[in-house]
Nucleic acid binder design. Structure first.
Lengths: 350, 350
DNA sequence: ATTAGAAAGGAAACCGGTTTCAGATCCGGA
DNA sequence: TCCGGATCTGAAACCGGTTTCCTTTCTAAT
């Protein structure tokens, strides 16, 4: 009705270009994809018309005939978490450079929603699928997730950041043992002996690993494991860090250093510490994981584990692309973490 | 090569279902889209096979024949900025509820990249296009942007959060005059007379508006405008807020309250203030815009302007969908801001 | 001048859905 | 029993590209 049917305003196709140029659609296609010889004269004519009409080929039609969509689907648990935002931004850059588009979806941590989104991505015929966080990271539900993967994502390459054992997909993981080691060496080097681990949930793979590595590192440094110095059972946000740290104080624990499972939690932990009248780092040192801008934003700035998001995202995307193109790559790759020391950690009090 | 060509592993289509069910592809399509009567017996058979093979229709093929892709493209300036992340998450929810998929792209603030991404979205045949930030927000470059819109996006509905005059697209804007009024009333009510405005760049529409409204509100409250209490010329991050606040101290300005153009900047401003040995809010009150989690995270928590992201995103998406479906809506809509008072603002010092 | 071989380009099939059109089947009423 | 209309359903065209196949047109060698 309200459409302007003035003829000028129609979406032009390869056929329109072909007709006006006096060639066949096949020739226009050849010029555009540049994968066959076309006489210079005709090529020029086609290109002239393409520019004249600002023609853009319909990617949907192309994908349909290629059976390659040149789209990589990315599923994150929560895009508001700067960790995922950084990683996504990096993946997008890498994909763009490789001629791929990324389709981001956000499960908000809801498993049902996650399932719907996986179906959605499948319907959109993404060439590959990268999942960061969500059920790949949950310790229980492994079976369901694997089943879903095998059922829904049959023959679409999948790259995940979590899980390890026996899954038919590619994995790019952080060397979290190394990360914990860096933190522990840093803290013990500063003389800390009562080091707490706070935040997250043990049924999340990464957190569980941190816990195990924490115990192991304690042993290596000949420190005793004190269960009152471990608090978990929250989500990964500030509020949760705040609660857990308060609870630890309530229980009478007196750590001289705290390892937060992520920067977000660290922000809450710091607040709790400040409210309890302690100074950072003079009374208590705080360190975290992820090194997002939150770490830089805190007062004092947070010592944190950096993953080099640029490289991490790049690896995820490259792995996906290799899988799409049938090239062989390691099914399990590892990203090496780095320690960034800032003002939130210092010498242990006497 | 490494593909499993075991026959089982092929992507099944509507034709496969049709053949096995002994009906025509048209009938399968009718069952799936549910927009025509099909005899119960055949319907059941088709649905049975759909479930058996976990069949998912190819959205690309569907879009191609519909000329409706059911995809809304969203272009943001920087997804790492929690303001955009919140808004995106909200848009995605709204779109999902309405049966649409969103395709997010991130320009990283690069105008050239932005142009490429607009082309990309066009090639992907998005049904509508929502732009938040980036060149829609730039004061100069209006002409180029409009030209691009008219050239590239011909006949695709566009919804933007910036700009106003004479553009052929829909706009959903925040009532920024109201927002400034809320902040100023709050601060003057607390007795503040030397109120600074810090952050951002004047060539960005929203920031320019804030500046004008700031002056106007000062006048309304019979306060003198002091140019040394305005600092701009940075980006919208923490570092920039830090620098600008430092500069203001260096210039000898002594505000009792600071309005930051966004939470991000406020975080840097707070750091500068703390480093200068002042207390918040006893010596200086700080307030900001956006009310992202950063505001909650800061110490003390930041008084900030909230936009109700849920509603904002919803409006953006609903406007886009109305435009897609040819329904009439206001071309300019306004979101009403709300003041959230927290610990960072208090009575003016004597 | 001929002709083999390479290069160029058109016709048509294909990707996997939706939809129009027309024919087939069903129903109740005369 | 027969008929008219409503209900179903299949054949075929279509969406807009790519690609195969085959014919036409060059080019260069004999």
């Amino acid at each position: 009705m309200a459409e302007q049917n003035n003829g000028e305003n129609k979406v032009i196709t390869i056929y329109d270009i072909a007709k006006e140029a006096g060639v066949s659609p096949a020739t226009v296609s050849r010029v555009l994809t540049n994968n066959a010889k076309v006489r210079q004269e005709k090529r020029d004519k086609v290109l002239y018309l393409v520019r004249k009409y600002n023609f853009r080929p319909n990617a949907l039609a192309r994908s349909l005939s290629d059976t390659r969509s040149k789209v990589i689907g990315i599923l994150v648990a929560d895009i508001r978490n700067p960790y995922y935002a950084e990683l996504f931004a990096s993946c997008e850059r890498a994909a763009h450079n490789a001629g791929y588009t990324v389709l981001l979806t956000n499960s908000s941590g809801d498993p049902q929603r996650e399932g719907e989104l996986i179906e959605l991505l499948q319907e959109q015929r993404v060439d590959a699928f990268i999942q960061m966080g969500g059920s790949v990271d949950a310790l229980f539900s492994e079976e369901q997730y694997e089943e879903r993967l095998n059922r829904d994502m049959a023959h679409i390459p999948v790259v995940v950041t979590g899980k390890v054992e026996g899954m038919d997909c590619h994995m790019v993981r952080i060397d979290s043992a190394q990360a914990m080691k860096l933190l522990m060496e840093h803290l013990t080097g500063l003389g800390h002996k009562r080091i707490a681990l706070i935040g997250g949930r043990m049924d999340v793979l990464g957190t569980h690993e941190k816990f195990l590595q924490y115990q192991q590192c304690l042993a290596e440094h000949r420190l005793v494991f004190d269960p009152t110095l471990v608090a978990e059972g929250g989500s990964y946000d500030m509020e949760s860090g705040y609660e857990l740290m308060n609870r630890m104080f309530d229980n009478g624990a007196e750590p001289t250093a705290v390892i937060a499972v992520n920067d977000f939690s660290a922000a809450g932990i710091v607040r709790s510490i400040v409210e309890h009248g302690k100074r950072i780092p003079e009374d208590i040192s705080v360190v975290g994981y992820d090194n997002t801008y939150i770490a830089r934003m805190m007062i004092p700035p947070l010592t944190s584990i950096d993953y080099n998001y640029e490289e991490y995202g790049n690896r995820l995307v490259q792995t996906a692309i290799c899988a799409i193109e049938g090239k062989e790559t390691d099914r399990l790759q590892t990203v090496t973490p780095r320690l960034v020391v800032r003002g939130s950690s210092g010498k242990a009090p006497e």
